[in-house]
Amino acid sequence: MSEVRELYQELIIEHSKKPRNFGKLDGADHEATGFNPLCGDKVTVYVKLDGNVVREIRWEGSGCAISSASASLMTERSKSKSLTETDALFQIFHKLVTGGELEEAETAQLGKLAVFSGVKEFPVRVKCATLAWHTLRAALEGTKTVTTD
Protein backbone atom coordinates (compact mmCIF):
# COMPACT_ATOMS: atom_id res chain seq x y z
CA MET A 1 0.00 0.00 0.00
CA SER A 2 1.41 3.41 -0.93
CA GLU A 3 2.05 5.94 1.83
CA VAL A 4 -0.80 8.11 0.71
CA ARG A 5 -3.21 5.14 0.79
CA GLU A 6 -1.84 4.34 4.24
CA LEU A 7 -2.76 7.87 5.29
CA TYR A 8 -6.19 8.00 3.68
CA GLN A 9 -7.50 4.64 4.82
CA GLU A 10 -11.10 3.84 3.97
CA LEU A 11 -12.31 4.34 7.51
CA ILE A 12 -10.83 7.85 7.55
CA ILE A 13 -12.48 8.78 4.25
CA GLU A 14 -15.75 7.29 5.44
CA HIS A 15 -15.74 9.19 8.75
CA SER A 16 -14.74 12.42 7.02
CA LYS A 17 -17.72 12.12 4.70
CA LYS A 18 -20.17 10.97 7.35
CA PRO A 19 -18.89 12.32 10.63
CA ARG A 20 -20.41 10.77 13.77
CA ASN A 21 -21.72 12.82 16.69
CA PHE A 22 -21.70 15.92 14.52
CA GLY A 23 -23.56 19.02 15.66
CA LYS A 24 -24.04 21.12 18.74
CA LEU A 25 -24.74 19.41 22.06
CA ASP A 26 -27.45 21.27 23.94
CA GLY A 27 -26.80 21.53 27.63
CA ALA A 28 -23.11 20.75 27.34
CA ASP A 29 -21.23 21.52 30.54
CA HIS A 30 -17.85 21.72 28.83
CA GLU A 31 -17.01 23.16 25.43
CA ALA A 32 -14.01 24.55 23.59
CA THR A 33 -13.05 25.57 20.06
CA GLY A 34 -9.74 24.64 18.51
CA PHE A 35 -8.09 26.36 15.54
CA ASN A 36 -5.24 25.39 13.33
CA PRO A 37 -4.18 28.84 12.10
CA LEU A 38 -1.93 27.28 9.47
CA CYS A 39 -4.80 25.80 7.49
CA GLY A 40 -7.92 27.33 8.99
CA ASP A 41 -9.26 24.07 10.44
CA LYS A 42 -11.76 24.65 13.21
CA VAL A 43 -13.25 22.17 15.66
CA THR A 44 -15.69 22.79 18.52
CA VAL A 45 -16.06 19.97 21.05
CA TYR A 46 -19.04 19.73 23.44
CA VAL A 47 -19.03 17.46 26.49
CA LYS A 48 -21.59 16.51 29.10
CA LEU A 49 -19.98 14.87 32.12
CA ASP A 50 -21.55 12.52 34.58
CA GLY A 51 -19.23 12.79 37.53
CA ASN A 52 -15.91 11.69 36.15
CA VAL A 53 -17.30 10.06 33.02
CA VAL A 54 -17.91 11.48 29.54
CA ARG A 55 -21.66 10.89 29.24
CA GLU A 56 -22.20 12.68 25.92
CA ILE A 57 -19.78 14.18 23.45
CA ARG A 58 -20.40 15.93 20.11
CA TRP A 59 -18.41 18.13 17.78
CA GLU A 60 -18.82 20.53 14.90
CA GLY A 61 -16.46 22.39 12.64
CA SER A 62 -14.73 22.25 9.29
CA GLY A 63 -11.43 20.99 8.10
CA CYS A 64 -9.55 18.42 6.09
CA ALA A 65 -10.37 14.70 6.01
CA ILE A 66 -7.78 13.92 8.67
CA SER A 67 -9.05 16.46 11.19
CA SER A 68 -12.74 15.67 10.58
CA ALA A 69 -12.24 11.90 10.79
CA SER A 70 -10.12 12.34 13.90
CA ALA A 71 -12.85 14.38 15.61
CA SER A 72 -15.48 11.87 14.56
CA LEU A 73 -13.56 8.82 15.78
CA MET A 74 -12.49 10.60 18.96
CA THR A 75 -16.08 11.29 19.97
CA GLU A 76 -17.00 7.66 19.26
CA ARG A 77 -14.07 6.37 21.27
CA SER A 78 -14.25 8.65 24.32
CA LYS A 79 -17.95 8.27 25.03
CA SER A 80 -18.56 6.56 28.39
CA LYS A 81 -14.87 6.77 29.23
CA SER A 82 -13.54 8.28 32.43
CA LEU A 83 -11.47 11.45 32.26
CA THR A 84 -8.35 9.49 33.16
CA GLU A 85 -9.02 6.98 30.38
CA THR A 86 -9.64 9.76 27.87
CA ASP A 87 -6.39 11.46 28.78
CA ALA A 88 -4.44 8.20 28.54
CA LEU A 89 -5.99 7.54 25.14
CA PHE A 90 -4.89 10.97 23.86
CA GLN A 91 -1.35 10.23 24.99
CA ILE A 92 -1.29 6.92 23.14
CA PHE A 93 -2.89 8.53 20.07
CA HIS A 94 -0.29 11.30 20.14
CA LYS A 95 2.48 8.71 20.26
CA LEU A 96 0.92 6.88 17.33
CA VAL A 97 0.72 9.91 15.01
CA THR A 98 4.15 11.27 15.94
CA GLY A 99 5.87 7.93 15.36
CA GLY A 100 6.58 7.00 18.98
CA GLU A 101 7.12 3.40 20.11
CA LEU A 102 3.85 1.85 21.27
CA GLU A 103 3.71 -0.98 23.79
CA GLU A 104 1.45 -3.90 23.02
CA ALA A 105 -1.07 -2.92 25.69
CA GLU A 106 -1.20 0.59 24.23
CA THR A 107 -1.81 -0.68 20.70
CA ALA A 108 -4.63 -2.81 22.04
CA GLN A 109 -6.28 0.23 23.58
CA LEU A 110 -6.26 2.19 20.33
CA GLY A 111 -8.92 0.12 18.63
CA LYS A 112 -10.21 1.92 15.49
CA LEU A 113 -7.88 4.86 16.21
CA ALA A 114 -5.05 2.73 14.84
CA VAL A 115 -6.28 3.80 11.42
CA PHE A 116 -4.32 7.03 11.93
CA SER A 117 -0.97 5.21 11.92
CA GLY A 118 -0.18 6.61 8.46
CA VAL A 119 -0.07 10.17 9.79
CA LYS A 120 3.43 9.66 11.22
CA GLU A 121 4.85 9.69 7.68
CA PHE A 122 3.32 13.15 7.13
CA PRO A 123 4.69 15.45 9.86
CA VAL A 124 2.80 18.48 8.54
CA ARG A 125 -0.48 16.65 9.04
CA VAL A 126 0.07 15.68 12.72
CA LYS A 127 -1.69 18.84 13.85
CA CYS A 128 -4.72 17.93 11.73
CA ALA A 129 -4.98 14.59 13.54
CA THR A 130 -4.51 16.01 17.05
CA LEU A 131 -6.61 19.18 16.78
CA ALA A 132 -9.82 17.55 18.08
CA TRP A 133 -7.96 15.91 20.94
CA HIS A 134 -6.28 19.15 22.02
CA THR A 135 -9.70 20.78 21.88
CA LEU A 136 -11.28 18.06 24.02
CA ARG A 137 -8.55 18.47 26.60
CA ALA A 138 -9.06 22.23 26.60
CA ALA A 139 -12.81 21.77 27.04
CA LEU A 140 -12.29 19.50 30.02
CA GLU A 141 -9.76 21.89 31.51
CA GLY A 142 -12.18 24.76 31.08
CA THR A 143 -10.18 26.60 28.41
CA LYS A 144 -12.48 28.11 25.80
CA THR A 145 -10.20 28.31 22.79
CA VAL A 146 -7.04 26.55 21.80
CA THR A 147 -4.75 26.74 18.79
CA THR A 148 -2.24 24.23 17.51
CA ASP A 149 0.56 26.80 17.59
Partner: peptide, 23 residues
Protein backbone atom coordinates in the same frame (compact mmCIF):
# COMPACT_ATOMS: atom_id res chain seq x y z
CA UNK B 1 -16.43 19.31 -4.11
CA UNK B 2 -16.32 17.52 -0.75
CA UNK B 3 -12.51 17.33 -0.58
CA UNK B 4 -10.48 19.74 1.51
CA UNK B 5 -7.62 21.53 -0.31
CA UNK B 6 -5.09 20.25 2.23
CA UNK B 7 -5.93 16.69 1.34
CA UNK B 8 -5.56 17.63 -2.32
CA UNK B 9 -2.15 19.16 -1.55
CA UNK B 10 -0.89 16.12 0.36
CA UNK B 11 -1.94 13.63 -2.31
CA UNK B 12 -0.49 15.75 -5.14
CA UNK B 13 2.77 16.06 -3.20
CA UNK B 14 3.02 12.28 -3.14
CA UNK B 15 2.96 12.49 -6.94
CA UNK B 16 5.83 14.97 -6.89
CA UNK B 17 3.48 17.86 -7.67
CA UNK B 18 4.00 21.01 -5.59
CA UNK B 19 0.93 23.24 -5.25
CA UNK B 20 -0.17 25.57 -2.49
CA UNK B 21 -3.18 24.72 -0.36
CA UNK B 22 -4.55 27.28 2.04
CA UNK B 23 -5.88 30.80 2.22
Amino acid sequence: EGIHPHDVGTILDQEGIAVRAGH
